[in-house]
């Protein structure tokens, strides 16, 4: 329990530092969002509008940096991340909450699938070395070494254009209204198949390789030999002695990869025009949409931190050696 509280305190401090940096960076950069907006409207804004825009973005020059900072925090705690330019006047929070479920669902599910699939294959191929599963390894490694955008484009060229089995872009059929009903959900699933498969294909090799290597290492440990000498069933030795110990690095790797679910999908969402966070970030960068960028960065930072915390907790749960004595 003490351990958990210590970690929580550590992550609270890290989160504070990350948010502060997130606040400072746009203010340290030359130019500001208002100038960007002014140039975008090519002088059609009058000084009143500029002043109100500056106030809106919390860039009021009359305010000290400190009062801007406290203001930033209080609006952050209210869930107010400012207004997006690209989707003006939609608040950033709303843009993000529209995009987040898409990313979470697509990349979350595919990350989970590739972790489970890769670890499972890794366990078996590490335990029974020389079986046909070893032949899978070069194939998956080859696929994962292909740059993702190219893999995605090939997948689109083959399975959406040459043989139109799947749609080549979007998160759902644009003729449908997003709602929790079967036509919409099935359309979303259908649109998710091609990006999902390409993500799994490109990620699974890492899990297989990591798990197989750890299985090979752990299999030569004395306690595995002892377990065999004890006459335990092969399943028990393989899972409870070898895989149970070998999976630890993969578990922390998995928890960390959860943090990159939000951010690591830029390419996927670009290639497939998928309405997720990465796609929004691309738009925000293209349009110099500072509030949206800040919002995306904030979400990424917080999710990486949350994933790290999760990794710590999972590790403490699975490996008694990392637990502090009470």
């Amino acid at each position: 329990m003490k351990y958990v509280l210590q970690r929580l305190a550590f992550y609270a401090v890290t989160a504070w530092a990350a948010i502060t940096i997130n606040f400072l960076i746009p203010r340290l950069m030359p130019g500001d969002p208002v100038e960007a907006l002014m140039s975008r409207y090519q002088g059609q804004l009058d000084t009143g509008a500029i002043a109100s825009l500056k106030a809106l973005f919390g860039l009021d020059e009359n305010q000290s940096l400190w009062s801007q900072y406290t203001g930033y925090w209080s609006s952050l705690l209210d869930g107010d991340l400012g207004l997006s330019f690209t989707y003006f006047p939609t608040p950033v929070g709303e843009v993000l909450s529209d995009a987040l479920p898409w990313t979470l669902a697509l990349v979350g599910i595919t990350t989970l699938i590739s972790f489970l699939l890769g670890t499972g294959i890794g366990v078996y191929s590490g335990w029974r070395r020389g079986s046909w599963l070893d032949g899978l390894l070069p194939v998956t490694t080859f696929i994962s070494s292909v740059p993702y955008f190219w893999l995605g484009l090939i997948a689109i060229a083959l399975f959406a254009v040459k043989w139109p089995l799947f749609p080549f872009e979007g998160g759902y059929d644009s003729s449908l209204v997003p709602a929790f009903d079967w036509p919409f959900i099935s359309s979303a699933l259908y649109h998710g198949v091609l990006p999902g498969i390409t993500i799994v294909l490109s990620a699974v090799a890492g899990w297989i390789l990591g798990m197989r290597n750890m299985m090979v290492t752990v299999s030569s440990e004395d306690y595995v030999m002892v377990a065999q000498a004890k006459g335990l069933s092969e399943r028990r030795v393989m899972f409870s002695y070898a895989a149970r110990n070998a999976v630890l690095p993969n578990i922390s790797g998995f928890a960390l990869s959860l943090g990159f679910i939000v951010s690591g999908t830029l390419l996927v969402e670009m290639v497939f025009n998928y309405p997720g966070i990465g796609f929004r970030l691309l738009q925000a960068v293209g349009a110099k949409d500072y509030p949206l960028m800040q919002g995306v960065f904030l979400i990424i930072t917080l999710s990486v931190l949350a994933a790290n915390l999760l990794a710590d907790m999972a590790y403490a749960l699975l490996d008694p050696r990392t637990r502090k004595e009470a």
């Binding site: 002892v226 000498a229 006459g231 002695y241 149970r244």
Partner: peptide, 25 residues
Amino acid sequence: LRAFRWQELSIVFQGAMNSLNPVHT
């Protein structure tokens, strides 16, 4: 062989440090 092991013949291995699985009680 599984049934025979430990039931009739057990082994104490060298290196007590590594003979126990660190993640099980």
